[in-house]
Write a protein that binds this DNA or RNA. Structure first.
Length: 878
RNA sequence: GCCGGGGUGGCGGAAUCGGUAGACGCAGCGGAUUCAAAAUCCGCCGCCGAAAGGCGCGAGGGUUCGAGUCCCUCUCCCGGCACCA
């Protein structure tokens, strides 16, 4: 078939995709003869259509998949759908269609988009988390967790919309009001199921060290989130009784501290507004009650917290210092968190900056118990060294005087243990994972409520508990409450009529183990099987940094639970992680008093550039009036600055979109969208095609039947072309190892630049070009698979480029007779000199000193010292 | 506040072990082609300077024959966490 002269991306991509479909090219089959490579991109939520972030994510995964396939790995790249979730319910409310229908039609559409981008996905492994054959295993493992005490029930606080009678997610609460009703949101205590991720805190933290191929920042974010601190938990005894006459908290005010060495400096205690002692004290103290109310209703927004003034009120209650026996007053402080530790702190104003400020504000005593050298302590202002535990030594502390940090903590902890009133303890920031959601479109929690037997787990043989797919939520409450066919059931224990649990699981549960299920398609007898033993762990995981904490932490936790249940042997699911940067575009807006902010899409404005080509502003095409330029920001629906992948594919093709995304920025960095950049990428592919046409018409006819390249001495031009190609190949291979794809794309461009300039008028030239263009096509093929597939096949290289071996640079092609060295005088580059390839340092020195560049700048002075860096430069010191 | 990451032409970004800073591309400028335009092709393209040359990788200092790269001080930007006791 003759190769058309003009690059037709639509036809090219269609042909290639048909070939892949026909040959089932991406089917992954277990094969122990080859090293396996499991490449996984985070599966999408089927929100409607793909956005550019998806395209970038999956292109990175596809490049790695295809590259490893050509390198001889047995690769698997699956795809699925994170199909449960709130947006489907919102769409259902708006369109009056069941969430299932909306979800399945989105999946259909987005699957078509993924296919049109040419990703090497094994669709036979496709899964959707909303299908019973998938979520059955959520339920099954949940039951195992219940048995092991990892899953448990307790009350939780939720946002309650009193008008719709429904629970709201945090993002549905806007300025304290329900997003649909505008009603003031209440806090409600309702029961829910929790997973005891804290039981795994130590392991989740410790195993971070084994994740060498994870970005450092992700590991740090997880470590911070887990938040381990070691210290002492101890109690201040008291005899404060409630109305019924019983001691509050058994007469102990428990606190946690990492600075037990400063216990002798405690001058007061502070408790959270929700603390029982605060509640008690407020009963006969309206001022305190009002303050507590203010603390509780106060904003929990970060920005407010940061600027919030530390405030407090005394309770009038006193507790006893466990070591000195002194009476210590209890305050309520707005800075004490009920959710961390015991909701109370000891206050040592002398050695804690926050306590210091609080004590100064309310005129509370400040007692120094730590000294650093001869430094003078004063209560005038806080000094950094007051909190220095490295160099501090205890003073004014009675029997504990003269001890360093560790010795003091040990001695004090020992005494508290002896008094049976304290212990060394590790405190975690991490909290257990509440998985109950009062929502319809999610995985049902397999529990049955019986009046006699209580909450009874659904027996394994009754799994899955299937969610009805035909409900249409109307925004008021969970529609399952109206489904008697779902609701009514028999108690598995006593057989009496009972009610099914209507809460569903957090969708993070669904995504916590899908990677393992991809390796076990179609098995309805087991969650995972021996095929998963073959494929797991995931060799390369790719996704957005926004999942650095929750999704990745839950997946790690889930894996460890699966291990403890005996399902898997590995400790961690993802051996290597790449967090790709976001895709940005220009933002334009106009603010008016009448309509508020109006957004303008980038193609609805004309840019105003300054003399140097920088964007300084824009005008709307509609009315010619100026709009505000907001710089680059993430693509979003509201800001109208998204780019539609389908429009891209239609106009330029998938290969151009893929090439642009790989070329414009390294994968971890943000990527700024640019129409001109897209044009540039398209131009490059058109040139690749044009060279393919030259190859077909001018090169191939010249090729001799017997190739002589390996035994022929090439002339300078051909040798340097070949060297240039092999050098760029070497560079590309190095960069692929680093996962730096932008420079791989650069290397491809450099190869084409060299090829276009090459002589093409002899049989041997044709042979060199044949080899070189073959290298270019293969290096380029993971990035732009369609065009390279077609050229490879049509130009006679072989049937399927994906089956071709990845090229390796040849030493013979890289070798050169003469090398050019940079000549420096006193470290400044002055020129260059050519030396024979095998020249020794002595000879090189002589040639360099004799060179024109050196002679001019040495000004007749003798060389004091000459440094030769082999293959690079010569530096002459005078 | 703490912890990370970063600052290189008009722009996106290269520079592997301390060894020619600005690869590759975009934008811009000049030219060829064209009736003209688009497309395409060729050339130029950090700053100062007529040139020789000098200066240049956030700022300042240091180590070195040689520093974007190593060390110290400062500064700004981005991300995460945060009254965490």
């Amino acid at each position: 078939m003759a190769l058309p002269e003009k690059y037709d991306h639509t036809a090219t991509e269609k042909t290639a995709q048909q070939y892949w479909d026909k040959t089932d090219a991406f089917r992954a089959v277990e094969d122990t003869a080859k090293p396996k490579y499991y490449c996984l991109s985070m599966f999408p939520y089927p929100s409607g259509k793909l956005h550019m972030g998806h395209v970038r994510n999956y292109t990175i995964g596809d490049v790695l998949t295809r590259f490893h396939k050509m390198r001889g790995y047995n690769v698997m790249q699956p795809m699925g759908w994170d199909a449960f979730g709130l947006p489907a319910e919102n769409a259902a409310i708006a369109n009056k269609v069941p969430p299932a229908q909306w979800t399945y039609s989105n999946i259909e559409y987005m699957k078509g988009q993924l296919k049109s981008l040419g990703f090497a996905i094994d669709w036979s492994r496709e899964l959707a988390t909303c299908k019973p054959d998938y979520y059955k295993w959520n339920q099954w493992l949940f039951l195992r967790m219940l048995e092991k005490g990892i899953a448990y029930k307790k009350t939780q606080t939720v946002n309650w919309d009193p008008v719709d009678q429904t629970v709201l997610a945090n993002e549905q609460v806007i300025d304290g009001r329900g997003w649909r009703t505008g009603a003031v949101v209440e806090k409600r205590e309702i029961p829910g199921y929790y997973l005891a991720i804290t039981q795994y805190a130590e392991e989740l933290l410790g195993d971070l060290d084994t994740l060498e191929n994870w970005p450092e920042r992700v590991r740090l974010m997880q470590a911070n989130w887990i938040g381990k601190s070691t210290g002492v938990r101890f109690a201040f005894p008291h005899d404060i009784k409630d109305e019924s006459g019983s001691l509050i908290n058994d007469g102990k005010l428990w606190v946690f501290t990492t600075r037990a060495d400063t216990i002798m400096g405690v001058t007061f205690c502070a408790v959270a507004a929700e603390h029982p002692l605060a509640t008690h004290a407020a009963k006969n103290n309206p001022e305190l009650a009002a303050f507590i109310q203010k603390c509780k209703s106060g904003s929990v927004m970060e920005a407010d917290m940061a600027t919030m003034e530390k405030e407090g009120l005394p309770t009038g209650l006193f507790v006893t210092h466990p070591l000195t026996g002194e009476q210590v007053e209890v305050w309520v402080g707005n800075y004490v968190l009920m959710s961390y530790g015991d909701g109370a702190v000891m206050a040592v104003p002398a050695h804690d900056e926050r306590d210091f400020g609080f004590a100064k504000k309310y005129n509370l005593p400040i007692k120094q118990v730590i000294a650093v050298g001869d430094k003078i302590f004063s209560t005038d202002a806080w000094q950094e060294w007051y909190g220095d535990k490295e160099h501090g030594v205890t003073i004014h502390s009675g029997k504990y005087d003269g001890l360093g940090y560790k010795a003091a903590v040990d001695a004090i902890a020992d005494d508290l243990v002896a008094k049976n009133i304290g212990e060394k303890k590790t405190q975690w920031r991490l909290r257990d994972w509440g998985i109950s959601r009062q929502r319809y479109w999610g995985c049902p929690i397999p529990i049955i409520h019986c009046d006699d037997c209580g909450s009874v787990p659904v027996p394994d043989d009754q799994l899955p508990v299937v969610l009805p797919e035909d409900c249409v939520p109307d925004g008021s409450g969970n529609p399952l409450h109206k489904r008697s066919d779902f609701l009514n059931c028999a108690c598995p224990k006593c057989g009496k009529p009972a009610r099914r649990e209507t809460d569903t699981m957090d969708t993070f549960v669904d995504s916590s183990w899908y990677y393992a299920r991809f390796a076990t398609p179609g098995n309805d007898k087991a969650m995972v099987d021996e095929r998963a033993d073959y494929w797991m762990t995931v060799d390369q995981y790719i996704g957005g940094i926004e999942h650095a904490i929750l999704h990745l932490l839950y997946s790690r936790f889930w894996t460890k639970v699966m291990r403890d249940v005996g399902l898997v042997k590995y400790r961690e699911p993802f051996s290597r992680l790449l967090t790709q940067g976001m895709v940005l575009n220009h933002i334009f807006s106009r603010r008016s008093d009448k309509t508020g902010i109006e957004w303008f899409s980038p193609d609805s404005v004309d840019l105003i550039l300054d003399a140097s080509g920088r964007v300084t502003g824009a005008t709307a095409k509609r009315d010619g009036q100026p709009v505000d330029y907001g710089g680059y920001g993430t693509m979003s629906k509201t800001k109208l600055n998204g780019v539609d992948p389908n429009a891209m594919i239609e106009q330029y093709g998938a290969d151009t979109a893929r090439f642009f995304m790989m070329f414009t920025a390294p994968p971890e960095q943000t990527l700024e969208w640019s129409d001109a950049g897209i044009e540039g990428s398209y131009r490059f592919l058109k040139r690749v095609w044009a060279f393919g046409h030259v190859f077909a018409t001018q090169i191939r006819p010249q090729l001799p039947t017997t190739r002589t390249l390996a035994s022929t001495k090439l002339d300078d031009k051909l040798a340097s072309l070949r060297r240039e190609i092999h050098l760029n190949l070497k560079q590309a291979n190095y960069d692929l190892g680093k996962q730096q794809f932008n420079t791989v794309a650069s290397s491809c461009m450099k190869m084409l630049n060299a090829l276009e300039k090459a002589p093409r008028d002899s049989a041997i030239a044709a042979e060199v070009i044949e080899e070189c263009f073959g290298i270019l096509l293969r290096v380029l093929s993971p990035i732009t698979p369609h065009i390279t597939h077609t050229l490879w096949a049509d130009l006679g290289y072989g049937e399927d480029i994906l089956q071709a071996a990845w090229p390796e640079p040849l030493d013979a092609a890289l070798a050169q007779d003469e090398i050019e060295l940079v000549v420096q005088v006193l470290g400044k580059t002055r020129g260059s000199v050519k030396v024979p390839a095998g020249a020794d340092n002595k000879a090189i020195e002589a040639l360099a000193i004799a060179s024109e560049a050196a002679q001019k700048f040495m000004e007749g002075k003798p060389a004091k010292k000459v440094i030769v860096v082999p293959g690079r430069l010569v530096n002459i010191v005078v």
